[in-house]
């Protein structure tokens, strides 16, 4: 399996993914200096500067979540069917290795690459903010949960790639993510305030399709301390059940659910790849 992991990492490098890593690294570095640039250009006190840094950090974390997920989708969606169609696996599959070794080797390769990227980007953001005298340790606390984004999207894309071509697999992964994101961010407030049962059911379904809202809560709880005033706070008025629906609290079984979801996606993809004809 080690050979497949190494090959997947080399493949990622070949696809200029490393160039993407560098571009995002530089962008994050530049982003973190925006509050200082604004302060120097337009003035402002230390409290405003600190608020600016906090917003840059939160935006940086969102950017890391987004780009690491995109990278994982790009690398995983073309890992199985597309490689079969191109003929890359024609000489590898007859080698004495189980198909699960190939599948997990590819998964681990992409996950290692994504994790290394996300860690590098977080480190860059942390260093650049610390250089300005505003270290934010919350970033490191959030990192393990941020890593779940590329793992989640990559696992799903790989499972879909076991029977779909690269473009369709990535399209489906993005569509599922978009459905979950849209349900959580846009439908949830409408469903909460107007008590629309159908929308509530759609939101409930979206959580099963993809645990995006769960991940969001897991990251959010780590960065609560640096949230600007008014962000992420529960509304003060309303029925308790509506408030809970609008902004659910983190439950002990949230991580278990995410883990089971990942395991299920991995297993389904593996079973399809194991049983399919490769020609």
């Amino acid at each position: 399996m080690g050979v497949i992991i190494a090959l997947t990492l080399k493949e990622a490098m070949r696809r200029r993914a490393f160039l993407g890593t560098l571009i995002i690294l530089v962008t994050l570095y530049g982003l973190s200096f925006l509050p200082r640039a604004f302060k120097e250009a337009f003035g402002g006190d230390e409290r405003q500067f600190e608020l600016g840094v906090n917003i840059a950090v939160l935006f940086g974390i969102d950017a890391i979540k987004f780009f690491s997920a995109v990278l994982a989708i790009l690398l995983c969606s073309g890992a199985i069917t597309a490689e079969i169609e191109r003929g890359y696996l024609a000489a590898i599959l007859p080698r004495p290795l189980y198909r699960w070794e190939l599948y997990l080797g590819k998964w681990l390769g992409v996950m290692l690459f994504s994790a290394a990227n996300a860690t590098l980007w977080t480190a860059m953001l942390w260093v650049s903010v610390a250089l300005q005298g505003e270290p934010r340790v919350e970033m490191w606390r959030a990192l393990p949960y941020v890593l779940l984004y590329p793992i989640l999207y990559g696992t799903l894309a790989l499972a879909l790639s076991s029977f779909l071509g690269a473009s369709i697999a990535s399209m489906f992964t993005v569509a599922l993510g978009a459905f979950a994101y849209f349900s959580d961010h846009f439908l949830r407030p409408i469903a909460a305030y107007f008590d629309v049962r159908l929308l509530q059911q759609i939101i409930w379904l979206s959580e099963w399709v993809m645990p995006m809202a769960t991940l969001k809560r897991l990251v959010q709880i780590q960065v609560d301390a640096i949230l600007p005033p008014g962000f992420g706070e529960r509304p003060r008025f309303g029925r308790p059940d509506v408030l809970e629906f609008l902004n659910p609290s983190v439950q002990p079984f949230d991580m278990v659910y995410v883990g089971v979801y990942l395991l299920a996606a991995l297993t389904v993809g593996l079973l399809i790849f194991w049983r399919r004809d490769v020609q």
């Binding site: 090959l7 080399k10 493949e11 191109r86 003929g87 890359y88 024609a90 000489a91």
Partner: peptide, 8 residues
């Protein structure tokens, strides 16, 4: 040796 192949 496959007929249709694409090596790395």
């Amino acid at each position: 040796l496959p007929e249709k192949f694409q090596f790395h």
